[in-house]
Amino acid sequence: MDMKVKYRLPSLPQQAVLDEQDQALITLIQTGLPLTPTPYADLAKQLNIDEKEVIQRIQDLNETKVIKRFGVVVRHHELGYRANAMTVWDIPDETVSELGLCMGQFDFVTLCYRRPRRLPDWPYNLFTMIHGKDRDDVLANIQLLAKRCDLDEIEHKVLFSTRRFKQRGAIYR
């Protein structure tokens, strides 16, 4: 587990400039890469371009962060991470970015977003998804987080999931 606390700057996503060939490639690999010895050459054939161009375009999509990650996408539940809690924090606006960046450094934090408060009903503005093998493991991780990022004074709520209805990747056109 990476315990180093160091900050990285958040990125602000904007729509990328993509040509038709990029769009076709994005659509073609959205459900997965071919499980063949030469996947990029096979994609190239389907797109009528050469292999080098496919590789270059995927590299560019990685660099411009259109592709956030390239590799396996796991299903947490099936891998023994049976518990997760959406933990929400009410953090003063002046310090939310600093504390968000701190929390985002931990392996067991898979999502860390600032979202709008919905006052007076909902005061929480920072949302973290905390995973663990079971509920106690999740709670221990939250305690560790609070200690390491100095969150003792911060009001928070732990929302365990009790049922999951759907899980799919988004489909792009």
Partner: peptide
Amino acid sequence: RFGPMYDAQKL
């Protein structure tokens, strides 16, 4: 999945 995970907002 085995492949890319996209940033939906960039698309």
